[in-house]
């Protein structure tokens, strides 16, 4: 059974106004369990919109979203969270700044579970969180009671990543999660991502602006344009890709130049 099935999903923003934008157009995609898929595309291609459609931020115009065969199209965002691990582009978005590292991890460990009147931070869990934090190699295991707001962007992104995988999600959604970090920190977070995905055999969708990263990581690459998937490359064929051939393919298929400000700069 596929881990994710997008069946002809369509989403229009600002319908009926001059700003109407068809962000996703009859898009279908199927992911096998364990697939690590990198997603690239120009500005406004619909990459983030596709991830948000899976997360259920807003209702779709049409189409359905299936996670491991379960139709979640009608579920609100907070209910779908039970199946998803998410890391956002903005490091401020994924964690509660006013709460400690420990509290943030404890919140994530209860994703999809009933939150009752039991004490939130249990002694038995603390040791496990400490071990997990140590696996980040950022020294955070000694700062468990620090407020997350005191951490750097890279540290916050690493904690968010940990929160996303603290319970094995059926699908990990990474929305340009290294784009706001400096190159060195971005590399660290990306290495951690790759490590976790391999260790836990996570099905992953990673949007990135960095074409080289999209080629280097994962077993499958998809390219989007105008709300559609225009290129889908697997396994051996993917390993042979270069940035030049990717850009060339894009121009060939879409008939336009690849326009992504950040991708061209990096």
């Amino acid at each position: 059974m596929p881990a994710l099935d997008l069946l002809q999903i369509t989403k229009t923003f600002n319908r009926g106004t001059v700003n109407e934008k068809r962000a996703l157009e009859n898009l279908s995609l199927s992911l096998n369990p364990g697939d690590f898929v990198t997603v690239i595309g120009g500005n406004g291609a619909g990459k983030s919109t596709m991830l948000n459609a899976i997360a259920g931020i807003w209702p779709l115009d049409s189409g359905s979203v299936l996670l491991s065969g379960k139709d979640v199209t009608a579920l609100p965002e907070y209910k779908r969270a039970a199946y998803l691990g998410r890391v956002f582009q903005d490091p401020m978005l994924g964690t509660a700044a006013g709460m400690s590292i420990l509290e943030n991890l404890a919140l994530a460990a209860r994703r999809g579970k009933r939150r009752g009147l039991a004490w939130e931070i249990k002694k038995s869990e603390q040791a496990r969180y400490q071990e997990l934090l140590a696996s980040l190699n950022l020294g955070l295991e000694n700062r468990m009671t620090s407020k997350v707001g005191l951490l750097s962007g890279g540290q916050r992104q690493a904690v968010t990543l940990l929160m996303a995988i603290i319970q094995k999600p059926e699908l990990l959604l990474l929305d340009e999660h290294t784009a706001a970090l400096d190159p060195k920190t971005a590399a660290t977070v990306l290495e951690l991502t790759d490590k976790f995905v391999k260790e836990k055999n996570l099905t992953t969708l990673m949007v990135t602006h960095n074409m080289q990263n999209a080629i280097d990581y994962g077993n499958r690459l998809i390219m989007m344009n105008n709300g559609k998937i225009i290129l889908d490359i697997y396994g051996e064929e993917k390993k042979k890709l270069t940035v030049e051939t990717l850009l060339h393919k894009f121009e060939e298929i879409s008939g336009s130049e690849f326009a992504n400000d950040r991708a061209l700069l990096s």
Binding site: A81, L107, G112, M163
Partner: peptide, 15 residues
Amino acid sequence: RATGNNPAMSRAQGI
């Protein structure tokens, strides 16, 4: 507390 702190994060964590 998480809801007041960061609603987007809270929903992503199933709250």
